[in-house]
Design a protein around this nucleic acid. Structure first.
Lengths: 204, 204
DNA sequence: CCTCGTAAGCGTGCGTCGTACGCTTACGAC
DNA sequence: GTCGTAAGCGTACGACGCACGCTTACGAGG
């Protein structure tokens, strides 16, 4: 009976993501997203209760793209690597969502499904009880940690370059490490770091 | 000759930290910090070029407290654990600085010194070149990851409680894991997770 | 075809933020 | 006692999120 809705959740999320990709986190506001949708600022509030919920839609859109199917007969380490790498890749394609992901992860349904998939693998190879809690949180912490370090201080970024020029007498190790770091790709860093965690879990 | 300065960097940082502890990150503004110091808002700008620099002072204040001395003859795993745990504790006493730490870590001198100490241990047990880069970043990512997960979604928090009530048919593992998680203390989570990473590094 | 209830769309405005600008004022060397 | 210097701050501007209530488009019932 009443006037039909003209916007969809995913349309709103896509607009916000477009703004995010184009102008970064600072450029994301109710006003810019509304403009991106060709709509008045306050119209957005017909679809979203507040800015936080809009941010939630964005991370949902990004995380929904990660494929959770996994080669059934592959070793656990391989299956976990695949799940972690897909999540990292999905987020990596829209780096500006990292800060939003960190704050909204816990109430995202896509994130929960990812967690369920990871826990499925862990359970499959005998993790239960507290051990499973610890293993899961270790994996999650490593993943989120790498995401945020690549976002705020990538090895290829200015921070590392600056450290490479630190005075040798004060920071010999940091300086030398920074110099090697510039030749490590993000993929290599993530993959080999993940191998470390998996090896620590007794897998691989 | 001119009028003497009445504020110090550490005084400003301490005031900001007090506001942060009392009112959280949302309560931190140039106005509230100035008021905490008993000074006009714009007076702060005589000591700090912008809000970002003020945030930098806070994290410097917090990180300066971490003791970087380490038992010389202890095994590497023990030395790294001590360094990681001290950093975690220093930050844990002022949880509201976590978001600031994530954004300002790379240009903090205290953080650099901590990194230098960690790299010293790694070097001491034979890590060099790319391997040292990977090992360091893995440790750093894990540490930052746990900090941010405990800040945004602690195991003892509402997020975990909500997951414990998830429908069994959709999220069997997540639900069961969340139930066990509520009985894991933050210290236990961090310590055992760190053990995993260290074991993955071939230490311990 | 017309009416009218409903909800979409949005204009205005408030209180907050960071901070640019320039005035006033306290200090201490001469 | 004078005066150069920099400390201290009052005002104001353009963003922000969002509360409120008006206007307007729709489509089902008569």
């Amino acid at each position: 009976m009443p006037r039909p809705r003209s916007l969809t959740d995913t349309g709103i999320a896509a607009a916000a993501l477009a703004v995010l990709d184009r102008e970064g986190l600072d450029g994301l506001s109710m006003r810019t997203v509304a403009a991106e949708l060709g709509v008045g600022t306050m119209s957005l509030y017909r679809y979203v209760t507040d800015r936080g919920q809009l941010e939630g839609l964005v991370i949902e859109l990004v995380l929904d793209k990660v494929d959770l199917t996994v080669p059934a007969r592959a070793p656990a380490a391989k299956r976990l690597t695949v799940l972690a790498e897909r999540a990292r890749q999905a987020v990596g394609e829209h780096l500006a969502v990292v800060p939003l992901l960190l704050t909204h992860r816990h109430l995202s349904v896509a994130s929960r499904r990812w967690g369920e998939a990871v826990l499925g693998v862990l359970t499959d190879v005998g993790f239960t009880g507290k051990r499973r809690v610890i293993a899961f949180r270790a994996l999650l912490s490593y993943l989120l940690g790498t995401l945020q370090t690549t976002y705020f201080g990538p090895l290829s970024g200015g921070g590392t370059a600056a450290m490479a020029e630190l005075p040798v007498e004060d920071y010999p190790f940091l300086r030398d490490t920074a110099r090697h770091a510039q030749r490590v790709t993000p993929d290599e860093e993530f993959h080999r770091g993940l191998e470390i965690v998996l090896r620590g879990l007794g897998l691989s």
